[in-house]
Amino acid sequence: MAHQKYLDSPDFQKMVSTRNSIVAILTVLTLITYFGFIFLMAYGKETLSAKISENITIGLPIGVAVIVISWILTFTYANWANKKYDQMVEDIKGKVGG
């Protein structure tokens, strides 16, 4: 079976575990960022209401920060996958498949 060659290859196993770890870390970071904000909205109203200027509360930059962090996490993954992951896949195809 063609797939068995891959499954038995240490390179393939390493690639799978690398990808799963990166995905797990980034997912957890996203969840912490978002639910941290949600819990602040739900239970930390005073914290978010602190003024940073006459008419702006700290909640605004925090909200924008959640959007920016979501961008950064998404771009981080895409950048890693485009540069590293695709290369690993090609290497394994060449080594095991060929």
Binding site: T30, F37, M41, L48, G59, G63, I67, S70, L73, T74
Partner: peptide
């Protein structure tokens, strides 16, 4: 006012999840 942010942000943060877990 501010409460609208929960929708704006909630609609966006689904996208990193789609990226990491679903799209590929």
């Amino acid at each position: 006012g501010f409460d609208g942010l929960i929708y704006a942000i909630g609609f966006l943060v689904g996208w990193p999840i789609v990226m990491f877990l679903i799209a590929e």
